[in-house]
Amino acid sequence: MRGPLFYSKILLFGEYGIIKDSKGLSIPYNFYKGALKIDTHKTVATHKSNENLKRFASYLQQLQTEKPHLVNFDMDALLKDIDNGLYFDSSIPQGYGVGSSGALVAAIYDKYAANKITVLENLTRDKLLQLKGIFAEMESFFHGKSSGLDPLNSYLSLPILINSQDNIEPAGIPSQTENSKGAVFLLDSGITGETAPMVHIFMENMKQEGFRNMLKDQFVKHTDACVEDFLQGDVNSLFGNIKQLSKVVLDNFKPMIPKQFHKLWKKGIETNAYYLKLCGSGGGGYMLGFTEDIDEARKALKDYKLEVVYNF
């Protein structure tokens, strides 16, 4: 058996801000993907994933007992498949901010949820929110707290615009232009990041009035402007806002940026060759880069691994 493929995602804008109702924009990233498979031989390679699914299944069992109106799964089929060697075969790096648990959640929902909402039906806002709510509960098993957006993105394989926590819609993003110099890229920090500790630091900071004000007056303001600019294809305004956002993150989210990248981050802002921002919760994994000239950015970052994810 092999299930359908579910892709990784990239939250272009909105990390941390969406907890406080900023806008957000998330796009599928087809370079990484995962699918449910069964390995009847239960080899060493698939054992860890199979054990994880066992724990996840008991969590889902508990979830549907506590919240029967939210979601129900065909637990018999799921447990039987796990016994037969079910695992998630994935190329999505874990702890890199590109949605490894999101793709797994989407795959499990797709295969085992009863009365599932499908991509083919008319996706009203209510249905999107219902899906997001189900996915948030499912994914909390991995992160402690989840917005449900990663699995939603992976499940629908569509760009999603987050207007606020209870207002989301599929988004049309400007089509990519060939041979253009402008690009969004991933920069590999070479370190795995853990979501839960980063979210904890953020929540602790939120207890300070100064931090809350900065979030509202600067971080959310520039994030919202970036989303608007990106969707409208206003590249000039976009880079002005990304530069501001990059500065705000460097000044206020230092723990989320691996130490050895503080200088590199600052250099981008000073030279305008590229601007860096967090990809997911930070602390390691990928950082997102934006540049108006990818050749210049490659030169400036020649010692690092870049992957272009979008051209404009």
Rank of each mutant, 00 (worst) to 15 (best):
S175G: 01
Q165K: 15
N163K: 15
L161I: 13
A107H: 02
D188F: 10
Q130C: 00
A113S: 12
G133P: 00
L186I: 03
N163F: 06
M138A: 04
S157G: 02
L123K: 08
Y155Q: 05
I168G: 02
A136V: 04
F135R: 01
G133D: 03
H200V: 09
F135K: 00
G144H: 04
N115I: 10
Q165N: 15
K127F: 12
Y109G: 09
A113T: 06
S140V: 01
L123Y: 03
D150T: 12
A113V: 12
S180H: 05
S154E: 02
S180Y: 01
T124P: 00
L120C: 10
H143K: 11
G193I: 07
I134Q: 03
P151Y: 09
F185S: 09
S175Y: 07
E169Y: 07
D166Y: 11
S189F: 03
D188N: 13
K145P: 01
K145Y: 06
M138K: 03
E194M: 13
L158S: 05
I191L: 13
V184L: 15
L149M: 15
L149A: 10
K127L: 15
Q176F: 08
M138T: 03
M198I: 14
K132D: 00
K111D: 08
Y109F: 12
P170S: 14
F141K: 06
V119Y: 13
F141V: 05
N163D: 12
P174K: 09
D166G: 11
I191H: 03
G193Q: 04
M138V: 01
T192V: 12
G182Y: 02
S189H: 06
F142W: 14
A107L: 06
I162H: 05
L156K: 06
P159C: 11
L131W: 00
L161W: 13
L149W: 02
A114D: 14
K127V: 06
G182P: 00
G182I: 07
L156S: 10
T192M: 08
K116R: 15
P197N: 13
K127D: 07
S140T: 08
D166S: 13
I201M: 04
D188I: 08
H143I: 08
K132Q: 10
L158F: 10
L158H: 07
Q176R: 12
T124V: 04
L149C: 02
K116E: 01
S164W: 10
I201G: 01
G133E: 03
D110H: 14
L129V: 01
I108G: 10
T124Q: 07
K145S: 12
T118E: 14
E137T: 01
E121A: 08
I134V: 08
S154R: 03
P170K: 14
N179V: 01
A171E: 11
P159D: 09
V184Q: 09
E121F: 06
L156N: 08
H200L: 08
V184N: 08
G172P: 02
I168L: 14
D150C: 11
I160C: 11
S164N: 15
L129A: 00
G148Q: 04
Y112P: 06
G144Y: 04
P151K: 09
L128N: 05
N179W: 00
E169H: 03
F185G: 05
I160K: 07
N115S: 14
I168Y: 05
Q165H: 13
G190H: 04
D166C: 02
S146E: 05
S175K: 11
E204W: 02
L152P: 05
Q130R: 09
S140C: 09
G190F: 10
F202I: 12
K145N: 11
